[in-house]
Design a protein around this nucleic acid. Structure first.
Length: 513
RNA sequence: GCCAAAGUAGCUCAGCGGUAGAGCACUUCCAUGGUAAGGAAGGGGUCAUGGGUUCGAGUCCCAUCUUUGGCUCCA
């Protein structure tokens, strides 16, 4: 007998080799039907994994993230099984669960998949689901794993296995389908009652554009048909609230092929909305000691070479424009920071002048790849509410808290309730790409975190997301229907400028609109 | 940029080799005191752009532009 400790602290004696589902059955038979996966000593495992030692056990159901992930991951396998039936010889890349559903990257060997074929795949999935095929886990050696996929001729899985350590490789089998997989999975396919394949897209193998493009099939599944219906209805509702659709219907902004892609134009009605928002932002900032400034739309290339932006982004920017006679190179302003620094430098400043705060509704232009453009969310010309604060190191934290206050006021007024705040830090494995001393980075990162803590702001640290010149505090806002159109705004970048001759700290709270 | 799909009336879309269509919207007229209610008539489209095939091209082919869904990236 082994002893299992449940989340409420109660303990249960069960037979050695019992599974989480067995234990759920003992608690209540109905519960067993809802268990999708389990957390055993902190690790998420299959709901029918055999337990041979005392453990802490948490049963995960649909309402738990771990349960959902197992469900959707299993759904990806179910889809793969269906695909293998319908398209013999299909090869598989990766097929993970995602925030809403799952996808699988497949190589159909040059064959193109059309959306018309998706219902057929859905039917096949349901067919296998009804058979209640059990997900069986098998531990395999690296050699066995390689042999299996060599024989199958799936070079993608071979590449994946290649990177795994021997002794840490497992297969999962349901029906006739066997896949390389870490798990965990739900007990059997019968849990999947409702299936919808949503769209098809190209995706590079391993996200590298030099690699072959695979076909990515997105889908979602639910334990109940009603849940799928509700989800699809929610998607429809989200579509109705698509800013591109509303922008057209309400006559707020427009695009023109002649003006160019990604270059929105605000119509009279849209301009009213925008002006109103700007007036609000201006007032809030002026009352906090920010002074408005105005800067030109172009600047000498040298400005961005000095700032370091040219080296970092120059290749992917609009090419410089030249003066007709002298051939001097000017760039469209991709950001306002260097301009604001020049304004600061135009006069001598005493420490008593600090903090020095300026802001601008600065329109900037950035080249974005054509495939990336998306309404006002990703445009080639857009206006930032961009502010810069010059302050001394010991003012850093106070300024940070002030900025957080400002953001909270704005969010509250705009009704952005459900935001998340992310502290974007350096990539610990790649210190090369950042300018400035380690010491200064430490100071800046600490100031952000201390300020966030002081304001009771719960933040998520994200390594490798910092700008090259400083850590950021990013606020991500979702639209009204968070389940679907989860678009994020990197609304505020709080930045410290190092290596600057000013030897002062610079903040750059900016909001994009 | 890459893969895929798409671009026909103000909007949503049908037509897929033989003289441009529907619904909604719009205009005019009629009807109408009862909760998004009707009837009649009418205006409106070089069917994204440029080439090609054909007796004949929204319709087939090629190129370009733009949009959509993803991939990659985002100061």
């Amino acid at each position: 007998m082994i002893e299992i400790t449940l989340p409420d602290g109660s303990k249960k004696k069960v037979e050695e080799g019992a599974t989480p589902v067995d234990i759920a059955k003992e608690i209540h038979p109905a519960l067993a039907k809802e268990v999708l996966s389990a957390r055993v000593n902190g690790e998420i495992v299959d709901a029918n994994r055999h337990l041979y030692a005392d453990a802490n056990l948490e049963l995960l159901k649909w309402d738990d993230e771990g349960g959902k992930k197992a469900f959707w991951h299993s759904s990806a396998h179910l889809m793969a099984e269906a695909l293998e039936d319908l398209y013999p010889g299909v090869k598989f890349g990766i097929g993970p669960p995602i925030e809403n559903g799952f996808y699988y990257d497949v190589d159909l060997g040059g064959r193109e998949l059309t959306p018309d074929e998706l219902p057929e795949i859905e039917e096949k999935m349901k067919e296998h689901a009804q058979k209640k095929e059990v997900f069986e886990r098998q531990e395999v050696s690296k050699e066995e794993a390689l042999n299996f996929f060599k024989q199958k001729g799936d070079e993608y899985k071979l590449a994946l296995i290649d990177e795994l350590d021997d002794g840490d490789i497992s297969f999962y089998k349901q029906g006739h389908f066997i896949d390389l997989c870490r798990g965990p999975h739900i007990p059997h396919t019968g849990y999947i009652k409702a299936v919808k394949l949503l769209n098809i897209a190209g995706a590079y193998w391993r996200g590298d554009e030099n690699n072959k493009m695979l076909t990515r099939i997105y889908g979602i599944t639910f334990p109940k048909q009603k849940e799928l219906d509700d989800y699809l209805e929610q998607l429809e509702e989200a579509k109705k609230r698509d800013h591109r659709k509303l922008g057209k219907e309400l006559d707020l902004f427009t695009f023109s092929d002649k003006v160019g892609p990604g270059l929105p134009m605000w119509t009279p009605k849209g301009a009213i909305v925008r002006e109103t928002l700007q007036a609000f932002m201006r007032k809030e900032q002026e009352r906090r000691g920010y002074k408005p400034v105005i800067t030109p739309h172009i600047a000498k290339k040298d400005l961005y070479i000095t700032s370091g932006h040219y080296e970092k982004y120059g290749e992917d920017s609009y090419r410089p424009i030249q003066t007709p006679h002298e051939g001097e190179e000017y760039m469209l302003k991709p950001m306002n920071c260097p301009h604001h620094c020049e304004i600061y430098k135009s006069q001598m400043h005493s420490y008593r002048d600090l903090p020095y705060r300026v802001f601008e509704f600065g329109t900037v232009y950035r080249y974005e790849q054509s495939g990336e453009l998306n309404g006002l969310v990703r445009a080639r010309g857009f206006t930032q509410d961009d502010a810069h604060i010059f302050c001394t190191p010991d003012q850093l934290k106070a300024e940070f808290t002030n900025v957080i206050d400002l953001i909270m006021v704005v969010f509250e007024r705009l009704g952005f309730g459900g935001f998340t705040a992310q502290v974007s830090l350096r990539d610990p494995h790649d210190q090369e790409n950042y300018i400035g001393s380690d010491e200064n980075w430490q100071k800046a990162e600490n100031a952000i975190m201390e300020a966030a803590e002081e304001k009771d702001l719960s933040t998520v640290p994200e390594y490798g997301e910092a700008a090259f010149y400083g850590p950021k505090l990013d606020f991500m806002v979702r639209d009204a229907l968070s389940a679907s159109l989860a678009f994020c705004w990197s609304i505020v970048a709080a930045i410290c400028l190092f290596g600057s001759p000013l030897n002062k700290w610079l903040f750059c709270p900016s909001m994009t609109k």
